[in-house]
């Protein structure tokens, strides 16, 4: 079950999205996320959905694969929805029993929140599906490069991120192994209340941490033996250069953002008072 987590994983395929410059994908994802949170019209969400769907089709990542990535956040989504549903007050009361009250505003906020979060996860995981962690960190490194002037170790941060991403599947696999090993020795991970369950995690976390440190040590040695000495004097195998398709992608995203805002502002198409 633990290996099913697909968030943050790269999905190899040959699509225009995979070939885009990582900087474009980062900036456009950010723009998309901002567009989700700064507009409130139904039509705006319809446009966002169409845009997102188009991008998914372009990426050639199977739809089921993306949906699978949503699984781990369902709990979070439910909690957010429930809180918004019952705790936001405003507008006409639709439902009232004991301490539970659902208002018009509560309902609309809950629905929008659910849509927003789902789009947010899909949008950002599309970025990681189509960008190898290395090029992602290359993109971040290049985007944050100006910070180098105020002594932020940009290259080192980027390198740390890319290594962390590389080790996620390895450590997950290891967690699985340790869990099985401890279960084989009679560890009980399933029963008991939440505190007992948390305590049962200790025999899994301790070996996991020990092995993670050992791996880190090995990896550091392997990197050093391959002449790694930080960002200075390093060349790039895949240097980032904007191409025509990258400018095109910027243009499409900017047009989308303007469209969403314009419609939110000028087209009076509100189902809920919001």
């Amino acid at each position: 079950m633990i290996r099913d987590i697909t968030i943050g994983q790269y999905y190899p395929a040959k699509s225009i999205l995979h070939r885009l410059d990582p900087r474009v994908k980062i900036v456009c994802t950010l723009l998309f996320l901002i567009s989700l949170f700064l507009q409130k019209s139904v039509l705006g969400y319809v446009i966002a959905a169409v845009f997102l769907f188009g991008v998914i089709r372009l990426s050639r990542v199977p739809f089921q694969y993306i949906v699978k990535g949503l699984k781990p956040i369902i709990m979070l989504l439910m909690i957010t929805v429930l809180f918004n549903l019952f705790l936001t007050r405003g507008g006409a009361v639709l439902f009232h029993k004991w301490i539970f009250t659902i208002t018009e505003l509560g309902l609309s906020t809950a629905v929008f929140m659910a849509i927003r979060l789902t789009f947010l996860i899909i949008g950002s995981s599309l970025m990681t599906f189509t960008t190898t962690p290395n090029s992602l960190t290359d993109g971040i490194e290049k985007l944050l490069y100006p910070l180098n002037k105020i002594r932020v170790p940009v290259h080192e941060i980027a390198m740390m991120m890319s290594i962390a991403l590389r080790f996620i599947p390895i450590l997950l696999e290891e967690t699985d192994k340790i869990m099985k090993a401890q279960i084989a020795r009679g560890a009980d991970l399933e029963s008991g209340n939440i505190i007992q369950k948390a305590k049962a995690m200790i025999p899994i976390l301790v070996p996991l941490f020990v092995s993670a440190f050992r791996r880190a040590n090995d990896l550091a040695m392997a990197m050093e033996s391959r002449c790694y000495r930080g960002g200075d004097g390093r060349t790039k195998m895949k240097p980032l250069v904007y191409k025509g398709r990258d400018r095109m992608a910027y243009l499409v995203t900017v047009v989308y953002v303007i469209a969403v805002f314009a419609i939110g502002r000028y087209v009076p198409f509100h189902i809920w008072i919001f």
Binding site: N134, I163, R166, L219, A222
Partner: peptide
């Protein structure tokens, strides 16, 4: 596993 740095 511990000496491969790249993800591709």
């Amino acid at each position: 596993d511990n000496q491969i740095i790249g993800t591709v």
